[in-house]
Design a protein around this nucleic acid. Structure first.
Lengths: 109, 109
DNA sequence: CTCACACTTAAGCATATGCTTAAGTTATGT
DNA sequence: ACATAACTTAAGCATATGCTTAAGTGTGAG
């Protein structure tokens, strides 16, 4: 976690773990406490808390302490970031494939 | 790299490194040899080769040995995977935010 | 045939990661 | 006040990661 210089690093790294993605999926249903988040996850509470930290630093989740409970909810910010980057690259991709196809067709003619 | 059970793990992990992303950006311009890919990257060739392996396993890049040169090109497959996943989640996101907004407006009325 | 080029493999090492358990801390119910 | 619930912090440890250098391997040029 030392190396999270750029925002994209954080977001993609956060999303690269199935446990963290399942936490996101759980939160997509609605807010949850840390304990509720941890319950289905076959690991200790501190471990879950660390994963939560990764998600939070990536801007995918926001948390707030209410009484003795930490409530967690989604934060769409990070996703937009990642989605934009991917969409951008995909333009390049597709354009290249199109060009390749054109090239092939040109050869055939 | 032991833990790359699901496809998404691979793709997101591959994208979480700025060096690897810059390799992708370079390949978006056009195919390149391993050496060309390594040149701007301030690290040894074997290191670059390892990064390339990560990209390849994620389905983001395809390589082929031509003579004594390994040519690398993009492979759109992996991106589509990641993009779809993100888009799906974002639907949940947005729907939740809409609902929240509706709720707030309802309270105000 | 020889040699240099472009990787490729292997070994090794410093550091980071992903957990764990145990010991706090703060808030709530009685 | 006291016990318990819900985290939180700290320490520690096994393993994984991200490089490195050094020693192969296979090709193409001369």
């Amino acid at each position: 976690m030392l190396k999270c210089e750029s925002r994209l690093d954080c977001v993609f790294h956060a999303l690269s773990d199935p446990g963290r993605r399942s936490m996101i999926d759980r939160l997509a249903v609605g807010p949850a406490s840390l304990g509720q988040l941890a319950a289905p996850l076959a690991m200790s509470l501190p471990a879950v808390q660390q994963h939560l930290g990764v998600l939070e630093r990536a801007g995918l989740v926001k948390t707030e302490k209410l009484g003795r409970v930490r409530q967690c909810r989604l934060d769409g910010d990070g996703v937009a970031f990642a989605e934009n980057w991917l969409a951008e690259r995909r333009l390049h991709w597709d354009r290249r494939f199109d060009r390749l196809e054109t090239h092939i067709k040109g050869d055939r003619t």
